[in-house]
Amino acid sequence: MDKFKIFLTTTMMVSFLITIVIGITELVEYLTTGAFFYLEGWQPLSVLAVGVCTSIPTVLLLSPNNEKTAWLRIVLHFIIIMVIVMTSAYIFNWYHGFSGGIITFVEFIVVFSLVWIGNFSILKHEENLVNQALEKIRDEE
């Protein structure tokens, strides 16, 4: 159930953030150049599909308990997610041209960072709550 929860949370978070980032990028482009981005009917599904595909390596690589290989798995996770996102972006026509690819890569870095920052913030908040609760019951040193 714990892994399923990670899978679901990651899918929703990634899909949501990709949608936001694409939306903001296209809005900025429209406001600056007047260029209009026509959304194909299936493209929202492509965002969800990428969310699902990126959740699977997240569950597989970031769930195991082995601390020795943790950093290796984090780096591997980043590379695999990057390959999935950039390949999907190309296949699903999220961008056009080389410059579009660069912008998409930057967007990927932003979304990836936001997801990690989001998760870190949640864990930090929980850590603070536990420490505050421990203050109340801790024996004297």
Binding site: E67, W71, L123, E127, V130, L134, R138, D139, E141
Partner: peptide
Amino acid sequence: RKIRSVKNAVN
């Protein structure tokens, strides 16, 4: 009651 503090670790 013997825990001074906790800290998040990897994984």
